[in-house]
Design a protein around this nucleic acid. Structure first.
Lengths: 241, 241
DNA sequence: ATATAGTGTGTATTAATTACCCTAAATACT
DNA sequence: AGTATTTAGGGTAATTAATACACACTATAT
């Protein structure tokens, strides 16, 4: 149903929850504002999209790239908000995305971004409040990721390409905020046959080195032709009946 | 990251996939266009949102109400699209919603809407193409609903308030496009304890009348305080390993 | 050589999933 | 009244998945 509006125009904003895993913590990349409103508050990184020919996905990718130098990381459109008035003379609809990045890949460029734009990786557990409605967006993303991680292998996007089973388990424990049983976790994840044993071991650890694995995307895609689903990785998923 | 744009303005569109279940089929409410482009094509119902103070959700609810007379039906924001140019002089970002409605509730008003606006309930299985990118939106919604129905009780939104187990099973079979075993289905759904046995039977059927149940929302919410999840209702969920 | 820190493994129990068919009940028809 | 028709409703055995649980091994550092 369209009315005849003289000059419909799409000016909209992107907000981006960029998640990373570092030092046993889930972190997100925040930017400090230096103008009102919310001067000196942390915000989710974002941008205004004015160009009529830039797609939403491209704009979100641009935000990610400008802060981290990364291209091709896992990104997904998430939710669209229109309730926040940012500018005195009108609201801007904003489309939220979330991205999952390997922090190791961002080292150099992230430092640059941090220097010029006052950006920082902040452990999500320590974030108490953000500008605008960004805290709500962040919490909603975390809720979604906690669920999605149970049936879709997005968690691997946060780990180094080569990882140990313990690292993987730690990541799941942090995301789900819950301890998992080591033997059961290993049994389960190995039964899915979505990991490739690299026949390599960790180096430079001061204890017994663990075997390295990588996520076997080919096998995974072949297995789940339709839907890209894996069964629940967590214990006690679902409702107790 | 905001630039200083002189007059940011949110003009955006809503598109709405309205699903119903009728005569054993999943149907969606479509509207026939009577102007170019895509004259005489079916489209998803929608509207342009010009009012700076109408929320996205309210606009979506307005679309639903204007076509069906329904308020308070299940609706969920779904995905946002910006790639479609509808007006020669600029694209309009459009936010897609889907709604699940009880077709029985719409009988009168739907006829009115149908008369004035050339709207019709069309079985989704028979829809081959739609105007704009609406076919893509519809397919994506169906994919989402097929998945969501496995862990969230949205299917009940499509059934009459009082229903039989056979009706419920038929609905699942239609949504999932797959036969389910009667005994296993009943065992499972009853074990969840989210149905209330009404101790009533069907009337005016020309065979043995079945017991009527209703969805027990209170019990359901109590059970799944956190997440509103129910385990999989389908057989063979997940990846075969 | 010894302390330290993390790796890697198996089994028994319980719960969930699957495959599989016949009798009971209500109405329609003659 | 009797019979045909149509759908409702229920149980069990076999398989598979989920859980709870503890100790010996290995590599390095001192």
């Amino acid at each position: 149903m369209e009315t005849n509006l003289s000059r419909p125009e799409s000016v909209f904003a992107i907000d981006c929850v960029i998640l990373g895993f570092d030092e046993g913590e889930l972190k997100t990349l925040l930017v400090k504002r230096n103008e009102e409103p919310f001067k000196d508050y942390w915000t989710l990184p974002g941008c205004l999209v004015v160009d009529q020919y830039e797609s939403i996905d491209a704009a979100a990718a641009r935000v990610l790239y400008s802060l981290t130098g990364l291209e091709g990381a896992y990104m997904e459109q998430f939710y669209t908000y229109a309730d926040v008035v940012r500018h005195a003379d009108g609201r801007v609809v904003s489309v939220a995305y979330y991205a999952m990045v390997r922090l190791e890949d961002t080292r150099q460029s992230q430092l640059i971004a941090s220097y010029t734009r006052n950006a920082a990786w902040v452990p999500v557990a320590e974030i108490a409040g953000l500008a605008f409605d960004h805290m709500i967006i962040l919490e909603k993303v975390l809720k979604k990721v906690r669920r999605k991680v149970l049936y879709h292998p997005i968690a691997f996007e946060l780990l180094p390409v080569k990882f140990t089973l313990t690292q993987l388990q730690n990541l799941y424990e942090v995301i789900l905020n819950k301890k998992l049983d080591k033997r059961n976790f290993r049994k389960k994840i190995l039964h899915y046959r979505i990991l490739k044993d690299l026949n390599e071991k960790q180096k430079d650890v001061s204890y017994r080195a663990a075997k390295l694995f990588k996520f076997d995307k080919k096998k995974y895609v072949a297995m789940s032709e339709n839907d890209n689903l894996i069964p629940a990785l967590s214990e006690g998923e679902g409702v107790a009946v």
